[in-house]
């Protein structure tokens, strides 16, 4: 029997096709290296990792929401709202705040904005896309109208001090190239969210709701509470992403991040999270983000106009969803075996 063979293959492929995604990533890197021998270098690798930091953290929040069967388009607004408002507050108060204060303030803001989403969705059972489309507009409006619309270059200490720090530096072709230190918090957050989803009852509840809300209620999950909490968590992750973004770009611009929804959602869906809810993994999401960054990077290297990048990402999203639809149909085809060959006594 090839049963063990197929199951080993299945394990390699991963429950959300993570293996397939990793393979595509490798193939793409090899292809790019053949086209352009400069591609495979520490410099490119570090650049891709750096550009993946913010999208990864944002994608984690989106992942949780998508697993629960929802969709969130307000996270870029939450991210920039929290980070920008924090910068403004710190400047206004005259404190040159350290990391802890910056994080506490921005994450609390993110949590509150997430609470607005979660409250509306859980309490009134409204469609998540509509709610987050609405709150996205509201958050953006409040930010520009009441907090500020100015570009701010002077950041509090807690952000400034990490802006140009490197984790490691390697010599490459005469000059040094280095990996940004902020990959560390991104990886830590990945591990945390992975733990949250896989090893806590809250995480199981998120999957259960995404699979079948009524069934989740019937086994005793408090659907409302889980929904509220998960949007709060998504808000906190978005805020964290916002702070990382401001730190990396060394400036706070209230127009930033807005419009990056597509890239992030595409990364999560490519990473195997089901748009119908109930499926998805942190590993898949990380691979999805990397894939999109590699593709964007390759397109730039090949000198393809940036307008085409949007098209490429849109195309990837459609492919990702298409693959899900096809594999859903495929899996409903079954293997047959004579289940009961012995006659009943």
């Amino acid at each position: 029997m090839s049963a063990t063979g197929t199951s080993r293959l299945a394990a390699l492929r991963g429950s959300n096709n993570e293996g397939v995604l990793a393979l595509i990533l490798v193939v793409l890197v090899i292809a790019m290296t053949i086209v352009n021998s400069d591609f495979l270098s520490a410099g490119t690798l570090f650049a891709i990792l750096r550009s993946s930091i913010v999208p990864t953290v944002l994608a984690l929040g989106v992942l949780i929401v998508i697993i629960s069967g929802g969709i969130d388009v307000s996270f870029p607004a939450i991210a920039i709202f929290s980070a920008y408002t924090t910068v403004v507050l710190m400047r206004g108060s005259g404190i040159d705040a350290g990391v802890v204060l910056v994080l506490v303030v921005s994450l609390v803001i993110g949590a509150l904005l997430g609470l607005v989403n979660g409250g509306l969705i859980a309490r009134f059972k409204l469609p998540t896309l509509i709610v987050t489309l609405g709150t996205q507009g509201i958050f953006k409006g409040i930010l520009i109208a009441y907090v500020g619309s100015r570009y701010i270059a002077e950041l509090p200490l807690g952000m400034r001090m990490f802006s140009t720090q490197s984790l490691l530096t390697v010599p490459a072709g005469g000059e040094n190239t280095s990996l940004h230190v902020l990959v560390v918090p991104a990886i830590v957050l990945c591990l945390l969210v992975n733990f949250l989803l896989r090893n806590t009852m809250f995480g199981r509840g998120v999957y259960a709701i995404g699979n079948d809300t009524e069934a989740a209620r019937r086994v005793g999950f408090s659907v409302m509470r889980i929904q509220v909490i998960l949007y709060v968590v998504a808000g906190v992750l978005a805020a964290f992403g916002g702070v990382l973004h401001v730190t990396l770009t060394r400036s706070a611009n209230p127009q930033d991040l807005l419009g990056t929804e597509l890239d992030t959602i595409a990364a999560v869906v490519l990473g195997g999270a089901s748009i119908f809810g109930g499926r998805g993994s942190v590993l898949g999401t990380m691979l999805g983000v990397l894939l999109i960054q590699v593709i964007n990077n390759s397109l730039i290297l090949m000198g393809i106009p940036s307008a085409w990048q949007r098209t490429a990402v849109g195309l990837l999203l459609v492919i990702g969803v298409g693959v899900q639809a096809i594999s859903a149909r495929r899996s409903s085809r079954r293997v047959f075996a004579h289940r009961e060959v012995v006659a009943p006594a």
Binding site: Y207, A208, N211, D212, A215, V219, G278, R279
Partner: peptide, 8 residues
């Protein structure tokens, strides 16, 4: 209707 979770 079983009320199971298909993805688990």
């Amino acid at each position: 209707d079983f009320s199971l979770f298909p993805g688990l």
